[in-house]
Amino acid sequence: MLQASNKLMIHEFTYGKLADEIEKRQLGQIVEQCFIGSPSDTEPYLNRIGVDNFRVIRQAKEVVGGLGLLPMGQWYGGLCVPMTGIAAVGIAPEHRGSGAAIALMQNVVRELHESGMPLSVLYPATQRLYRKAGYEQGGSYCSWEIPTQSIQIIEQPLPAIPVALENFEWQKLYQQQAKSNNGNLERHQAIWQRLMQPDEKETIYAYLLGSLDQPQGYIIFRQRRGENESYLVVRDWVILTTAAAKSFWAFLAKHRSMVNKVQWRGSVVESLSLLLPEQTLDPKFVERWVLRIINVEKALAARGYPSGVESELHLEVQDDLLDANQGKFILSVANGRGEVTRGGKGEMKLDVRGLAPLYTNLFTPQQLQQMGYLQATESAIATATALFANSSPWMPDFF
């Protein structure tokens, strides 16, 4: 079994945990240079994720790159699937192009598989590298902006109650929303800490929508001034009812005398926009996170499926890195849950990359077949369409 604490030879590279304070400093310097940071940023970041959760790649006993592991979960079909997020992947500039990056990623994929992890997700600086390790586009990260004057929603059914960040269990309310959205995280504590900790020159404001004992949503935000405009930046939000959605917009509209624009992170298919009188919101950016099916059997069995569908999907998967993922599988679905067994007819053929956007529902089976990501019979396409039909996958978090 692969242990991260052991040094594993991949050509001239060795992989493992940080060995001592010297290697921690070396990795910190690489992270600073790769992500244009400073020692004052890097030390707290390493400690927040946890030093034991970092992995490094070495060449001739020198740390030449590394990354962080964030064990958490991701919601699909109403169930939370264990997932490890990959953060801060960095290679020292003088070692780029040496093969260190792909060696690092291949090793971490093998380690995660040995640990039994079903999924892994990361935000790619370049998709080409991560595709070589079996990752593929899985969902969206989108930032929206709207002129405050254009919101024009006056009715506010629920009060907005100011609450100190430390005086409310935000995680419980967040989870009620996350489980209904494909791709939303069961957040690692480091993500919560970043959301709740203000920068030195800003204040974070938090409001519950509804009552203290029965809140129906919340807004956590900061305000900032640009060169010519001022902004209200929503750091986190939860909307659980229609009344909360109307109150969300009405509360934001009340800032129009001093705030020019509101920014928030949401789905590419943003349902909040349905309540606006006009579609005056604009996407500021849209990025794709990538997902890797680490364990085919566990990943397919752990997610949820439509409760009214009872069917079998016969898959044949190719995975050049993980032999255990190769071969034929039968996904049997009933009562919203899946069961996976070996064997079957292999009516849908795809590699592990093609399985990722099918699994998350980023693209339909028809679209994936059209782009050459899978080959399947008409009946297999119809079955997969029914099994993986759900909301477009997204997350409001970057890591």
Rank of each mutant, 00 (worst) to 15 (best):
P357G: 01
Q326P: 00
Q156C: 15
F251Q: 13
Y130A: 02
E155W: 08
A245H: 04
V121E: 14
P39V: 01
N335T: 09
L315S: 02
N228L: 12
G343W: 07
W249I: 07
L362E: 10
L2T: 06
H188K: 06
L69V: 00
A60T: 11
L195C: 04
V317Y: 01
G50C: 07
V89S: 06
G343A: 12
G50D: 06
Q197T: 15
I102E: 09
A100F: 09
G217T: 08
E297F: 00
S140C: 09
R48Q: 15
I330K: 08
E339K: 15
K61T: 04
Q59S: 15
P283Y: 13
E32D: 12
E278F: 03
K298Y: 05
A253R: 06
F329G: 03
P215Y: 11
P118D: 13
E200W: 01
T360Y: 03
P157F: 07
A100I: 10
L70K: 00
S140T: 14
V238N: 03
S211A: 07
T42W: 00
Y218D: 13
K201Y: 11
F399W: 12
P198Y: 10
V31A: 13
K298E: 13
S257K: 13
Y218C: 09
R265H: 14
S211H: 09
Q175T: 12
F285D: 11
A103I: 02
Q367L: 09
R265E: 11
V262K: 05
P162L: 02
G304C: 01
E310Y: 04
P157Q: 13
A92P: 00
F251M: 13
V31R: 09
A88P: 01
Q176M: 08
V286P: 00
